Simulated assay, not measured.
Amino acid sequence: MPLRVLLLSLTALVLSACATPPAKRERSWPYPEQPGSKPAPTVPQRPSLPSEPVPGMPSPLPPQVPEMVPQEPIVVTPPPPSAPRSAEAVSGQAVTALVRQARSQRAAGQPQQAQASLERALRIEPRNYFVWSAMAQAYLDQKNYDQAESVANKSNSLARGNVYAELENWKTIRAARAARGDTVGAQLAQDRVAALQAAVSGAAP
């Protein structure tokens, strides 16, 4: 009898052990890092090297550097003896008086007053290139360099090859460009001045 009771107790213990559910396993993805594990070593990247030419492919051309084209020498034909040399030679009496007044005002250090006198002269003779040339000089005295060069170019377009007017205009252009820091432009203007001065010297009696 006791043996039977003992066997029944053992059987009950075995059955209770089998009925107990197994411990729930935790799953995670990715699996957590184990304590004490070392991180994967970082592989240093190689510095980028200049691309090598691919066989059969044209290599890139170097940047083009503009070539300085040598300027041909400027040749100016000497003016004929009958060419007018000043505003007095082509202007009427009123314009001549205003041009002389403007000269006196510029000499006195009054370029704005000289400009006003020349504007009055241009209202009378708007195509008088000597008056436009004097106006460019008045703008130069006022340090209005852009306007001085623009007006001098207008005088050149009206002068139609008059060497005496063009010489004064290119002197104004040279000074305006030099004042603006345009070294190359000033040198080109100087080349023109030199050629015009040679032509004027050739026409001198």
Rank of each mutant, 00 (worst) to 15 (best):
P35T: 09
Q101T: 01
T77Q: 11
E88F: 10
E52G: 01
S59T: 14
S82M: 07
P41L: 15
E72G: 12
V75K: 05
S86C: 03
I74W: 04
P73W: 04
A87F: 00
P44Y: 05
Q34V: 15
P80W: 05
P70N: 05
P41M: 13
V90D: 01
P81S: 13
P35Q: 10
V69R: 15
Q93P: 03
P58Q: 11
G92L: 05
A94Y: 03
V75I: 12
A87Q: 00
A83K: 00
Q71H: 06
S59K: 11
Q64T: 13
P47C: 09
A102Y: 01
A40T: 15
S86K: 02
P73G: 01
M68I: 15
P50N: 06
V43F: 09
V75S: 08
A94F: 04
Q64C: 07
Q34I: 15
M57Q: 14
Q64H: 06
P84K: 02
V76W: 06
E72D: 10
A97E: 11
P44R: 07
P63H: 08
E67S: 04
R100E: 12
P79G: 03
S86W: 00
P60R: 13
L61F: 04
G56P: 05
R100G: 04
E33I: 15
P79F: 06
E33M: 13
Q34F: 11
G36D: 03
K38H: 13
V43N: 01
L61H: 02
Q64I: 09
T77N: 09
P84Q: 08
P79N: 05
P50T: 06
T77I: 06
V90T: 10
V69G: 03
P47N: 10
P80T: 12
Q93A: 12
P35V: 10
S82N: 07
V69W: 07
P78Y: 10
Q71Y: 06
P78H: 01
P62D: 03
V43Y: 02
G36N: 06
P84W: 07
P60H: 04
A83Q: 10
S48N: 10
Q64E: 12
P84F: 03
V95W: 00
E88K: 13
L61G: 12
G36Y: 04
Q34M: 14
A94N: 02
S82E: 15
I74C: 01
I74R: 02
P55T: 07
A87S: 05
V65E: 11
P41K: 14
Q45S: 11
S48G: 12
A83T: 15
L49H: 03
P80G: 13
V95M: 04
P70E: 13
A94T: 12
P58V: 08
V43G: 00
T42Q: 14
E88Y: 10
P39F: 00
E88T: 14
R85D: 04
T42P: 09
V65L: 13
L49V: 05
A94S: 08
T42N: 10
P73L: 02
M68P: 07
T96C: 01
T42G: 08
P53S: 03
Q93T: 13
A97L: 13
E88L: 14
S91R: 03
P58D: 09
P79E: 08
A89Y: 03
R100H: 03
S91C: 07
G92H: 07
P78R: 02
A89R: 09
A97Y: 01
Q71F: 07
Q45A: 14
